[in-house]
Nucleic acid binder design. Structure first.
Length: 453
RNA sequence: GGAAAGAUGGCGGAGUGGUCGAUCGCGGCGGUCUUGAAAACCGUUGACCUGAGAGGGUCCGGGGGUUCGAAUCCCUCUCUUUCCGCCA
């Protein structure tokens, strides 16, 4: 959540930011917070004064008793009755005002950075870069009307004969043909959205996980293997609770949640922690299964691997100083971009507009890969800077070197990468007459250079 | 699942109703000494709210209660450890 200081420092800037995010009632919400804050301060000042008086009397009674002056002590006690009641009243006022203030703050989203484009929906997101490889027909066809400058053709050895465009299949057909993924079996065991990976399909999963983890390790991220169920405090810490309660699977008996992303357990490592500035940036990566209920999604957008209830993802998380977080963010972007280049996939990077960004983000870039058989861009990574918004909830602070004071950290995270849509694009974009080609960088992890029937 | 013990500052560990935000040790930081380092010695060392400042307030796992006054007494919740049982 936003800090009170952010609001008092520059109220108008905060309101303008919230309007860019298309948050209705920004002015009213901010004014309400400020009013509750004043109420709380007033109540606290009254309460502090009464408490100070009470402490003084209590101390003097102690001294009088020690000196054996029982009568004077009894006399002093008489004054404490009303004082005690006053303190209780003021404390109640204070707690009520504080609760209203926090409750209101929790409903207010993060303020976007100035570089975030205006706009309301995904239509308004701005493509900032395009790159990678595509098959000839698709690159020339200007994928989905977007400018594809930067996307190169092929990049394949001569020994491969790409399937002609009209013969290319969507991944759900390929998964069946090559016996890689059994969606029906998943329905039997668990339900829709829980695919069963088989044989080379399972091996491809493992290869990608290892590849992504190895690349993250090379980039200096410490590998974490966290729990995949978390308690309520963790859910609140990273902001999934209370607003997105319905998105997570909940284990009733034990009141635990299945994680929707490794961001939750990994970022919560630093909940209620004060980090020495010299230790920043903290760089962590984690592979976990992710669980999403995703209620209310239907149609061809969710076919095959496009949207699942359970999937594998490698997440990178950084905790940094306010001064360096932007540089950190750029490093994360180039890390993710590097992965897509090594996988030889056509991709584009979008800077999300104010209205399409998540509740908690201050700046967010999406990575999308072009799926040649589906003729669609698929989101495979979302890389965000949360500024102090998450850290404020997490109470994640650092001790500044220069003055030894504590200040809120910035938190960042990004997928690097989520598997299912990468698998979809890899299968669809690498169809050849003799099988499905595996990009060079992935071959050592997969153990061979193609998927065969 | 059964039984017992416990939860105090970065860590260890005192403190059982009255200047206790808390003795002490370690660690950290500053200094003396040293060519440098170590050792030794001296000093310093929690977080949060409020206030221009002086100051005031809150915090000894969480919540509630008793009392003029609670780290200390009572209730309750959570967690941890040990032993037994079960299991990978």
């Amino acid at each position: 959540m936003l800090t009170l200081k952010q609001i008092t420092d520059d109220k108008q800037a905060v309101i303008a930011g919230l309007e860019k995010k298309h948050f209705a009632g920004a002015t009213e919400a901010i004014e309400a917070v400020l009013q509750y804050s004043e109420e709380r301060k007033a109540a606290q000042q009254k309460k502090d004064a009464a408490s100070a008086e009470m402490n003084k009397i209590a101390k003097s009674i102690g001294q009088l008793m020690a000196q054996g002056k029982k009568d004077e002590a009894e006399e002093a006690k008489k004054h404490t009755g009303t004082l005690k009641q006053d303190i209780a009243t003021y404390e109640k006022e204070m707690a009520e005002a504080e609760k209203k203030q926090t409750d209101t703050l929790l409903t207010i989203p993060n303020v976007p950075y100035s570089v975030v484009p205006e706009g309301k929906t995904a239509e308004d997101n701005r493509a900032v870069k395009t790159g990678g490889f595509a098959l000839p027909e698709d690159a020339q066809a200007k994928m989905n009307g977007f400018d594809c400058e930067g996307i190169a053709l092929g990049g394949w050895d001569e020994k491969w004969n790409p399937q002609p465009a009209e013969a290319r299949l969507p991944h759900w057909d390929l998964a069946k043909q090559y016996n890689l993924i059994d969606f029906d079996l998943g329905v039997k065991i668990s339900g829709a959205g829980f695919p069963v990976y088989v044989g080379q399909g399972a091996r491809l999963q493992r290869a990608l996980i290892n590849f992504f983890l190895a690349e993250a390790a090379k980039a200096g991220y410490t590998e974490i293997m966290p729990p995949t169920v978390v308690n309520q405090d963790s859910g609140y810490g990273t902001g999934q609770l209370p607003d997105k309660e319905g998105q997570m699977y909940h284990c009733n008996t034990d009141d635990l949640y299945l994680i929707p992303t490794a961001e939750v357990p990994v970022t919560n490592i630093y909940r209620d922690v004060i980090i020495e500035e010299s230790k920043l940036p903290v760089k962590m990566c984690a592979y976990t299964q992710c669980f999403r209920r995703e209620a209310g999604s239907y149609g061809k957008d969710v076919r095959g691997l496009n949207r699942l209830h359970e999937f594998s993802k490698i997440e990178i998380v950084r905790i940094d100083t306010p001064e360096h977080s932007d540089a950190s963010h750029r490093e994360m972007l180039s890390h993710v971009e590097g992965l897509l280049q090594k996988l030889e996939l056509p991709y584009r990077i979008l800077r999300l507009c104010g209205g399409d960004m998540s509740f908690t983000a201050a700046l967010c870039y999406d990575f999308e890969v072009y799926s040649e058989a589906q003729k669609r861009w698929l989101e495979v990574s979302s890389t965000s800077n949360f500024d102090t918004y998450q850290a404020n909830r997490l109470h994640c602070r650092y001790r500044r070197q220069e003055d030894k004071k504590t200040a809120l950290c910035h938190t960042l995270n990004g997928s690097a990468l989520a598997l299912p849509r990468i698998v979809a694009a890899l299968l669809e974009n690498n169809q050849t007459e003799s099988g499905i080609r595996i990009p060079k960088a992935l071959q050592p992890y997969f153990g061979s250079e193609m998927i065969v029937k």
